[in-house]
Amino acid sequence: MASLNELEILVAERTREFKALQQKSADAAGKVIGEPVAGGTGLVQVDITGRLVGIEFDQERLRSLDERRLGRQLVEAIRTAETKAATVRDVLLGEST
């Protein structure tokens, strides 16, 4: 049967681990993964959960682009960024367990 002292130590350890995990999660939440759109016309940004948070375009290049082609390139860039985000998420949060 565990003594009160042992239980206190156990609770303190678990509390420390929980706070470390919370911190890692908070750090990870702020990370943004960028993926260039083919041809360097822009940058797709997703957060660590794979949510699309923004797309930036090079306005100079944008004028000369074909809309259909750009649409396909964006889909590809979003998929690649999501895959990278999943990898980063696994590395950052997987280590804590």
């Binding site: 699309l52 944008l62 004028r63 682009l65 809309e67 259909r68 750009l70 649409g71 396909r72 964006l74 889909v75 979003i78 998929r79």
Partner: peptide
């Protein structure tokens, strides 16, 4: 939730 298609309207890149 996978993005399958992004269709940009013709002329949407015009100034």
């Amino acid at each position: 939730g996978d993005v399958l298609e992004i269709e940009l309207a013709a002329g949407c890149l015009d100034t």
